[in-house]
Amino acid sequence: MATASSVNNVLNYPIRGARRFSNYCFAVVVAIGAIGFLLAGLSSYFHINLLPFSEPLQLEFLPQGLALTFYGIAGTLLDIYLWVIITLDLGGGFNEFNLNSGKVKIFRWGYPGKNRHLDFEYPIADVLAVKVEIKNGLNPKRALYLRVKGKGNIPLTEVGQPMALSKLEDRAAELAKFLGIPLEGL
């Protein structure tokens, strides 16, 4: 979990993006599976065993080999997409609360192009409250929002695994106290 750093009236929270251990593991597993399917399908087409630990030569190319080749190509494309997302670190960035400049800055990395840098700045005077949203159950949600005048709720937490309840409460209380604004939702 990211930690906050506070220096001279500046509070900064780094936000972890797509460069997570779970994403690396998932991309490696998808790559291994996709290569296996692709090699099995191609083995059945060319009648050459490209997988030394199995016997794909016993497969008929139509329909099994063709299906395996299709799944191998689809898996390879998915894996390329996952590695691009990891390389670009989509969703990564920081939240900065600067009392010296009177600004809140929220920065995230996006897809290449016009919106590669998602950079939002709001005056601290426009920040109305820190809002905590907690939803338990099958799909739990623990999120922290900044309620900004005229902008609605701006998300401050990372996407992915929900933050521990105690850490969420501590961060919300610290942020509300630092900005001198009310805390909602607890």
Rank of each mutant, 00 (worst) to 15 (best):
G93Q: 05
T3F: 10
L39A: 13
Y145H: 12
G33T: 10
G41E: 02
E55Q: 13
L38C: 00
K105N: 12
Y24A: 13
L156N: 01
F120A: 05
E121Q: 15
E60L: 08
R147P: 02
K177W: 00
N9Y: 10
E96V: 12
P162Y: 08
R142V: 07
S101F: 07
A143D: 12
L62H: 07
N95C: 06
G110Q: 00
I15T: 00
E158N: 02
L138V: 13
H117G: 00
F94V: 01
L66N: 02
L179Y: 06
A27P: 04
A176I: 10
G137N: 09
T157P: 02
G185Q: 07
E121T: 14
V104T: 12
R108Q: 07
L82C: 15
D126S: 14
F53L: 14
E184C: 01
E96S: 14
R116M: 12
A27C: 07
P155H: 04
I15K: 04
K131Y: 06
F97C: 01
L165H: 09
K135H: 08
A27G: 09
R147Q: 10
R171H: 09
L77A: 12
L11C: 02
L66S: 08
W83S: 08
G160C: 05
A143Y: 01
G180T: 09
H47L: 10
K151V: 14
S6L: 14
D170E: 14
L51T: 11
G93C: 06
V132K: 14
V127Q: 03
S5P: 02
A4F: 07
A18H: 09
R19H: 08
F97M: 04
L78K: 06
I154W: 04
P140W: 03
A129G: 07
P63L: 06
L50A: 00
F97V: 15
G72S: 01
E55S: 14
K135I: 10
E169R: 06
Y45S: 03
H117K: 08
L183W: 03
N139Q: 12
G152W: 09
K135N: 07
E133D: 12
K149V: 06
Y81D: 11
I86T: 09
D89N: 14
N12I: 15
K151F: 07
L186A: 11
K167F: 04
L11H: 04
D170Q: 13
D79L: 03
F97K: 04
T69V: 07
F107P: 03
Q64E: 13
G36C: 10
A172V: 02
V159P: 00
L99N: 04
D170T: 14
